[in-house]
Amino acid sequence: MRKRLLSLLFVSALFGGALAPVYAADVETNPAIAEVATAPLALNSADAEALSRELVGIGPAKAQAIVDYRTEHGPFTSVDELLEVKGIGAATLEKNRARLVLN
């Protein structure tokens, strides 16, 4: 998988991004590629729309639950604190750990 990602990045760079639509399709179908391709999201300042759009397995309702938790309890002190949000388990956290930063 890493070999394929590196090949796609190399070929895309070689052709000036002409293969970007192919790469975008790969990102949508393979969360591991998306994890590498996405810049980290600021957990303490992202709105529900950004959380829903950028995180794997987080839809609008869970994204709003994250924002509500943050409003009620204050800023997250650790990414692991997401486990306190109803509906977010260890598997979802691990899929998104590399995508999140505290700010």
Rank of each mutant, 00 (worst) to 15 (best):
T77A: 14
N30Y: 00
R2Y: 11
I88Y: 08
L14M: 13
V101S: 12
S52V: 04
G89R: 09
L83Q: 11
P60K: 15
E81P: 07
L6V: 12
N96M: 05
L6F: 14
L5K: 07
A63V: 09
L55Q: 00
G89M: 04
V36L: 14
E35L: 06
L6M: 14
A48L: 03
R2H: 14
Y69G: 04
T71Q: 15
A24H: 08
E49S: 12
G89L: 10
L93W: 07
A13T: 12
I88C: 04
A20R: 14
T92P: 01
A65F: 03
T38Q: 06
L43S: 10
I66N: 03
P31I: 09
A65R: 11
A25V: 04
A39W: 01
K86H: 13
V101C: 05
K86D: 15
T38V: 07
M1T: 11
H73R: 14
E49D: 12
A25H: 07
A61V: 15
N96C: 06
S45M: 05
G16V: 05
S78A: 15
L43N: 09
A63E: 02
Y69S: 04
V79F: 01
R4E: 12
A65G: 10
G17N: 06
S12G: 13
V27I: 15
P31E: 01
T29K: 13
L19K: 01
R99N: 03
D26N: 07
V11C: 00
T38H: 01
V101P: 00
V56H: 07
G59C: 10
G89F: 10
A24C: 00
G57C: 03
P21M: 04
E81F: 04
T29N: 02
